[in-house]
């Protein structure tokens, strides 16, 4: 049996994401990569914490002046929900229901774009109302770098999921592409994990002062 073989419901295994050796390697390699990403984001968080509210003069906006609960809350809800929808997609993948999987992935993508749009609005707002920019202070540099790195991950995740959806739209699920979908969804969850820390450490702790 080859990975690219045409699949039927009867032949579909219980964990299609780990059937071939390639799939097992991909699965493990991607988890290890996430271990490295953990350190990457930790370094960015560490830098942010060290430079939080470090500004050149008293007229610069600080964290407690900038962040507002409603926007951060909305962004959080959207991204958390997109995590659930991608779980739904993987649920249908395991049941060999390609159409439904695509549908839930589509919803995930839409939520992802919603999140990005809000983030862009947020940055725009800080720049134009507070003069809080990437270059205005060390605080600004650290803030935009941390949150922007996360945003870039979201954007990359979207491009990745869309590519997978389009590429496989006509040919359905196989043991060749199931691991690809699975790994992309892991990535999406990881992005969510990072966001949990961003909303807690940057936004909530920022508002506390």
């Amino acid at each position: 049996m080859h990975a690219e073989e045409k699949m039927t419901l009867e032949k579909w295994p219980a964990s299609p994401e780990k059937q071939t050796l390639e799939a097992k390697n991909k699965f493990l390699g991607f988890w290890l990569f996430l271990g490295g990403e953990t350190v990457l984001f930790a370094s960015l968080f560490a830098t942010y914490l060290a430079l939080k509210d470090k500004v050149p003069g008293p007229d610069h906006a600080l964290a407690k002046d900038l962040f507002e609960i409603p926007l951060a809350f909305l962004m959080t809800m959207i991204l958390l929900t997109s995590s659930l929808t991608s779980v739904y997609a993987m649920y249908h993948m395991k049941n060999f229901e390609f159409k439904k999987m695509q549908l839930w992935l589509g919803i995930t993508v839409i939520l992802g774009f919603g999140f990005l749009a809000l983030e862009i609005y947020e940055f725009y707002h800080y720049v134009h109302h507070y003069g809080h920019t990437f270059t205005s202070s060390a605080f600004g540099s650290a803030f935009y770098t941390l949150v922007g790195f996360h945003g870039a991950h979201v954007a990359f995740g979207l491009a990745w999921i869309i590519t997978l959806m389009v590429r496989n739209a006509k040919r359905g699920l196989s043991l060749y592409n199931a691991p690809k979908f699975y790994v992309a969804s892991l990535y999406w969850h990881f992005i969510d994990v990072v966001w949990v820390f961003i909303f807690s450490v940057v936004y909530l702790m920022g508002m506390v002062g």
Binding site: L28, L32, G35, E37, T38, A42, S43, A46, L49, A50
Partner: peptide, 23 residues
């Protein structure tokens, strides 16, 4: 998921030490 857990937690440990040092 033994290997994934091992590496994720190792990453987390290194990350936490980094954060601790920076604060």
């Amino acid at each position: 998921h033994e290997a994934p857990a091992l590496f994720l937690y190792s990453g987390l440990l290194v990350g936490l030490i980094t954060v601790l040092a920076f604060v």
